[in-house]
Every structure is written in C-alpha cells, then in structure tokens.
C-alpha cells in the first residue's frame, strides 16, 4: 500500500484553491475490515486525503521549497458515508497563508452531495517560532516524492515539474 489517498487533481489555482478526486474501490484491503460486510472509507483517511490535497496546494504556493506538515485539524464534520464505487471530490481553499503557516478550508463531496467539511492548518516547519532546526533535505516534497507529478499531471505544467528540484 502506498500512502496516497488522492488519485489526481482536476483543478488547481496556485496559492488559492485546488480540487482533487479519489476513486474508492474494494481493491483497497482495509475496506474489508472497515467494516466486514459494510465497507466504508474511514473518516480518518478522508481527513488524510484532504490533508494531501491541501498540503500540495500549500506546498505549491511556495514552489515546494517549504516543508509543509499538517499541524492542526481545526474542524472535521462528516455528513455521509464514503463507499466503494464512489468518486469523492476534495475541494481545498487557502484561507490564510503566512511565512510560517497556512490555514485552509475544505469540503468533500460525492455527486454534488456534501460528505464532509474539513478545515486544517499547516506549518512551514523551518519557519517555526521556536527556531527549531530540521534536516535540510525536504522530506516532504523531496525527490523521493515524485508521485506528486502524476497527481498534478492534468493541472500543472510548470509548477509541478519544479517539485523537489531545490
């Protein structure tokens, strides 16, 4: 299993807004345990999928130079189940972005129906207020994470290719 919970971006407006989709399928093993006879995409993974959508949006806003990590789940409210066969749409909007952090609001929908509202905060950890130091290598958007390029294939021609080149 690879820890990627979105399939591709379908909209991307740099520094502002992005939409990714995920196709949920019974080939995902965990669905057979969550729950036996009643497979649902775990809500925790819906939050992770939103964090990946929004995290890439926030990362791209600074040309993937910052190490962007999820710092706070401000809100996560679920209105419906996500089941195998569903294509969910993860819609993330940057509310605020500063040198040290970013705040986003997110909505998950399935066939136009609201599934969840998820608001998150990300930290640019090199800019943290405590002045802690982290490894120089960008372990978030570094070269080992080239999977971001296929995710962005349809929406970014230039910015996506710059990822991990620093």
């Amino acid at each position: 299993m690879r820890w990627i919970w979105i399939d591709k971006f379908i909209e991307f407006e740099s520094g502002k807004h992005a939409v990714a989709i995920k196709n949920v399928t019974l080939a995902e093993e965990h669905l057979h345990d969550h729950f036996p006879g009643f497979p649902l995409m775990p809500e925790t993974l819906c939050i992770e999928a939103m964090a990946q959508t929004a995290g890439i949006l926030v990362g791209e806003a600074k040309k993937f130079r910052e190490k962007v990590i999820l710092a706070k789940i401000k809100k996560a409210v679920f209105f419906d189940y996500v089941k195998p066969g569903d294509t969910i749409k993860l819609d993330a909007t940057i509310e605020s972005i500063a040198p040290e952090a970013a705040s986003i609001s997110g909505r998950i929908t399935c066939s136009e129906k609201l599934v969840a509202e998820i608001d998150l905060m990300f930290s640019h950890i090199d800019q943290n207020l405590a002045g802690k130091e982290f490894p120089e290598e960008n372990f978030v958007f570094g070269t080992g994470t080239s999977v971001f390029e296929p995710l962005l294939r349809d929406v970014l021609s230039v910015a996506g290719k710059e990822s991990g080149q620093d």
Partner: peptide, 29 residues
C-alpha cells in the same frame, strides 16, 4: 499550543480585517 497562536492570528485578521505582523502579538519567542 504554538500552532494555536497562528490559528488565532489568522482568525483575528479575518474577524477584524487587520494585518498582524509576525511576532507583533506574541513576541516572546
């Protein structure tokens, strides 16, 4: 916690339509 301070700064900026420069409100660090 520390990330909450940034959350508060962002929310105050929105609620009052002001710009809060880094370190101005919470300069102790």
């Amino acid at each position: 916690e520390s990330i909450d301070f940034l959350d508060i700064v962002f929310r105050l900026e929105k609620a009052f339509g002001i710009k809060i420069p880094r370190e101005e409100l919470f300069p102790a660090e």
